[in-house]
Simulated scan of single mutants.
Amino acid sequence: MKSFRADYVFPVNADPIKNGVVTVDEYGKIVSVSSYVQPGVAVEHFNGIICPGFVNSHCHVELSHLYGQTPKASGLVEFIRAVQALRKVDDDIIQQATLAADKQMYDNGIVAVGDISNSDHSVGVKKASKIYYHTFVEVFGFLPERAEGAFQAALELQRQFKPLAASVVPHAPYSVSKELFKLLKSYSDSESSNLLSMHNQECEDENKFYRYKNGKFIDLYDGFGIDISYFKPQARNSIQSVIPLLSNKQKVLLVHNTCTNLKDIYFVKRFDRNITWCFCPNANLYIEGKLPKVELFLDEGFNITLGTDSLASNDKLSILSEMQVLQQHIPSLPLNKLLEWATINGAKFLGIDDEIGTIEPGKTPGLNLLTNLDGFKLTPETQVTRLL
């Protein structure tokens, strides 16, 4: 056994412990968390705060080779065009970038990832990784006649990730037809575990598309040569239109929520759906140049998590960096709340909270050391060091 002592230990499931001590066994399993050192156990002393390993609820490691190649603050539609134009390169380049991204997340104290995949490029990296991965195999298809083919292709890709955790999920309201949503719902209703994740209201044009059938998504589909004349405006925002199409038998992660308003939140609350909201603030700033109205979600009783999105839309894969952005823009957010979003909430959504997410006996959550804080406030100089 060995012990780690710091100015404070934030177990997340309990109050912070001043001069806290975390004792682990040789496998990294928590033996005890307290304010005293067990006799005969070696102790490492640190200045700073010890907290559990981080959970990255939303990433795309297979896009890591696009680091620095997409335009910033150009809007989602232009970002989509750039990714589609740039993503196909030599497999070796994709593999090396994916491997480096996995290492970067590990070094940044991330212990579990909810990762989006549209190909099998990340299978080998995930199977060899020290990080826990749940892969969300995304399905696209806005044309009704392509629904069955797209769904079967997604099921085949899902099988390639086994025995790792994997599920089939919709990409976004603007890229999945009602027919494809129905196939997904039927599948999710019948499966014991098919966690759902969906990009939601990442830009205002998504809401314009659903409300009025205008905006930049019309040009996007024209550019791709896709005839969407069948689609009729819904006279309401995208999430209000598609939430009834999602299964109520599975947990649902709504990602980004950059343009989600209070009416949308209240609409979602009226439905029998197990919703978790995931924020990726650095990616929102990178793509749209704006942040979600996070304050609207704070007192509504939802599970909230954090993600990094991909290196195509972020300068780094760091949950600490996401917390720092939120702390900068919402100074009133307490550290214990940010740490909940960064640890246990993501673990709960992924269904692995019996192993990670909090520092308590019997768990193997990993341990991170945060340094260079201002009291209990994160600063731009705050750093994370992985202890376990």
Rank of each mutant, 00 (worst) to 15 (best):
F136G: 00
S117P: 08
R81Y: 15
I80C: 09
I131A: 01
V77T: 09
L86K: 07
V83I: 13
L99D: 07
N118S: 14
I94E: 01
M105A: 11
A97H: 02
A112Q: 05
G109L: 11
L76S: 10
Q95A: 12
A85T: 14
Y132E: 09
S129C: 08
N118H: 02
T135S: 11
I110W: 05
Q95M: 06
V125E: 08
V111P: 04
V111L: 06
V83C: 10
L76T: 00
D92M: 11
I93N: 01
V113W: 00
S129L: 10
L99G: 00
E78T: 11
I116M: 10
V83P: 03
L86T: 04
G109K: 03
Y106K: 02
F79G: 00
L76F: 15
K88R: 12
I131M: 03
S117Q: 09
G124R: 04
M105H: 09
K130L: 15
R87G: 10
I116H: 03
V113D: 06
G114L: 05
I116T: 05
V77F: 05
Q96W: 04
F79M: 03
Q104G: 02
G75A: 04
S117C: 15
K126H: 11
G109R: 01
A128N: 10
D90E: 14
N108V: 09
D91I: 12
I116Q: 02
D102H: 05
K126E: 12
D102N: 12
A128C: 10
D120A: 13
G75S: 08
G114C: 12
D120T: 09
D102K: 03
G124Y: 04
Y133T: 08
V123M: 01
G114A: 05
V83N: 00
H134E: 10
Y133D: 06
V111T: 04
S117R: 13
V113Y: 04
D107H: 05
G124M: 11
L76A: 03
V83D: 02
M105S: 03
E78Y: 11
V125W: 01
Q95I: 12
I94Q: 01
I80V: 14
A85D: 12
Q95W: 09
S129A: 13
Q95R: 12
V89L: 04
A101F: 10
D107Q: 13
N118F: 14
D120P: 02
I131Q: 00
I80Q: 04
F136M: 05
S117I: 15
L99H: 02
Y106A: 11
L86S: 03
A112T: 07
S129R: 04
V123C: 00
D120C: 07
S117A: 15
F136N: 00
E78I: 06
D91V: 12
G114E: 08
F79H: 06
Y133M: 05
G124P: 04
D90W: 06
A100Q: 10
K127Y: 12
L86A: 09
L99F: 13
D107P: 08
F136D: 01
S129T: 11
G75V: 12
S117K: 05
S119R: 05
M105Y: 08
V125K: 00
A101Y: 10
N118I: 15
Y106D: 06
D90K: 06
N118L: 14
A85P: 05
F136P: 04
G114F: 07
D91P: 15
I93Q: 01
D90C: 06
V125N: 00
D90I: 12
L99K: 00
H121D: 14
D115P: 14
